[in-house]
Design a protein around this nucleic acid. Sequence first.
DNA 1: CACATAAGTTCAACGACAGAACAAATCTTC
DNA 2: GAAGATTTGTTCTGTCGTTGAACTTATGTG
Lengths: 407, 407
Amino acid sequence: MPPADPVREPARQRDLRERNLATVLARVAASSTDDGTAPSRAAIAAATGMARGTVSALVDALLLGGLVEELPPPPRTGAGRPANGLRLSGRRVAALGVELGASHVVACVRDLTGAVRARASVDSVDRTGPPERVLGASAELAVGVLADARAQGLDVVGGAWALPGLVDSAAGRLRLAPNLGWRDVDVLALLSAHPGLEGLPLAVDNEAALAAVAELWHPGDSPGGESFVLVTGEVGIGAGVVLDGRPLRGERGWSGELGHVTVDPAGPPCGCGARGCLEAYAGQEALLRRAGLAAERAGADALRRAALAGEALPLAALEQAGRALGVALAGAVNLLDVDAVVLGGACAPLAPWLAGPVRAELAERVLRARLLGVPVRVSATGSDAAVMGAAALVLQRVLDAPAALVA
Amino acid sequence: MPPADPVREPARQRDLRERNLATVLARVAASSTDDGTAPSRAAIAAATGMARGTVSALVDALLLGGLVEELPPPPRTGAGRPANGLRLSGRRVAALGVELGASHVVACVRDLTGAVRARASVDSVDRTGPPERVLGASAELAVGVLADARAQGLDVVGGAWALPGLVDSAAGRLRLAPNLGWRDVDVLALLSAHPGLEGLPLAVDNEAALAAVAELWHPGDSPGGESFVLVTGEVGIGAGVVLDGRPLRGERGWSGELGHVTVDPAGPPCGCGARGCLEAYAGQEALLRRAGLAAERAGADALRRAALAGEALPLAALEQAGRALGVALAGAVNLLDVDAVVLGGACAPLAPWLAGPVRAELAERVLRARLLGVPVRVSATGSDAAVMGAAALVLQRVLDAPAALVA
DNA sequence: CACATAAGTTCAACGACAGAACAAATCTTC
DNA sequence: GAAGATTTGTTCTGTCGTTGAACTTATGTG
């Protein structure tokens, strides 16, 4: 009795073209990331096995759509007619990303090459205000960068908001956000109704998941089909899981709640009501308190300075937080068999003190560690990871389904 | 800088047909599972949006290939020409599954409808012998059921072996199996060379992952796109993860090592070298020892009888094992956002005592539990789960890519 | 300057689906 | 009981997208 599989949609002729457009576009994107060489039509045909004529037709469509451009100076090599190099074009397609950070809001527009073409941020936003107000402020910011981008001739094809908490991205709702004090907010409806955003396709997603997308897009990473868990410690602790180069969504988009994985069932109480959650050890509040820095408002920076100064209490707190993180991550690796662990968000600046204990726990607790170690990397994406990832999410959709923009 | 995505293959015309054959086949399979009704060509066309003529052509191919059959008595309903019902045919295509169990080896052949058409098992196999001997014994068994199936006119299109440990299914190797004492065995090569198995496409996979496939195929489950974690406690504790109706593989096929997720970092030592792994609480050996039954060889049965008799020590051990299981599973649900947790393998008969503590820990430790509870089900698949799943894995490939059998 | 070589374009052919017309089988109604 | 209605299944033409080969273009080599 085979299981029902209602997801399967029939394929039509235009789906063929859709997919092959994406194939060609992916080759252009991959080559420019990999080695800086701009592939020619013939090279793409050879690499994919498609007929040269087909590739030419598809490339023409992509050129016309402004997704791809030809390199004006053809790099000459050996004999024969020189090839026309192709690369992603940053001239037309762009995407908006917005992040509701701990105490600030950031918005940016990235073009198809990933370059940031417009950016704005507001500090000291009152996150505890009603959702309408906070989201409205972010929408204002978005309208501003949109205008900036459009003045550059960019066609912003969509936008994504990075939010902390349990985000139901299919429904466009923020179901639960302890750090914002929100519960079941229809973010998509509020934003879509905002003046200046009407008609723009919008999406919402969890900030950690989007930070993982940013990590995937960041240059310098080992390319292709990679899998990792990215830890993003801001106020809470989240994780973005990437399997086979694709972010793991979960049934409702609520995956990656690493902060509430149990480290010690009899451990200290956590804000969620349980005991011994990772956040109770490595969350910002717990970490600062254990380091004896609770009174100060400075946060992670102060902790970093104290650690650099060699103060005993902060170092002990970081050691313990690293061990707790390692225990939780070991569970994740045992369950998911990802290639690597990446320390991002607030963990990145603290990595000099966290990485050691994390590595030690992973080596001891991951079953496969005997066969294959678990590399611990530090994210090269800065504090803008979530915004960058939000825009990248939209761009990734363009890369996956370019036909809509090629008409 | 978009990430490289080398996985994307170009689509050809025949891929269209391949996929639409699978679409039609999936509809036939789903309807017969869902409600017992046999869909007609017209119904499939209406449901999928394909043209009736196209569906007819595809159905003809499937009929010719022996994957589908028409119901001889057309069920008459209202007005108009009566529809010809279609259902999966068990007459031609079948698949072999083999399991290396704790002390026995089982082999079975299932036809495309999932029905078991041949089965054989050997008890008291010496698992500690060299891989050649143990695998050879399983291959003998397989050859026997293959002959049985072929005598019934079945075309066995492939086989899969369920193995305990870290299985690299892409390479066909068992990398590490503590319970067998094996390390890096080229299972696929050994089996493929066995007389009587030459030429048969074979696969190897982890027993827990395959048990999850069996769970997915078992009638009575909520159909379609479901996601769950299936716990299979035999000697060790494994887990099969299903997301969106598809087994989660992991980068190397080593996912689902729930047994070595940390429950308490300072807990009792585990065979793997770490402390406080789930297996150190709920593994068979640990569980029996804590229940005061270590001396007996009987195993889980004895524990069940003792619990039924109300003995204090066994009940306490089960309570503690259930709590440990709940802690580990809560971590898995937080990370993966699966719909449900399923107790299978040796956990199924002990579910009356395990389910309560598991539910309690999940309710406390899963962040989303406030919004949406985590149902704990007991697997309806019997002790043959892994063999059944092994055969189902091969059948699933047929359902996913039927074109190869339709010529 | 002729030839070799490789890139890119054009075009007939083929495979697959869409949509409409048609045939078949049953029910309904007078 | 016969004609019409209704729904299923088949057939056929049209269209779309890819293939493969022939052709053109642009460059290097002898």
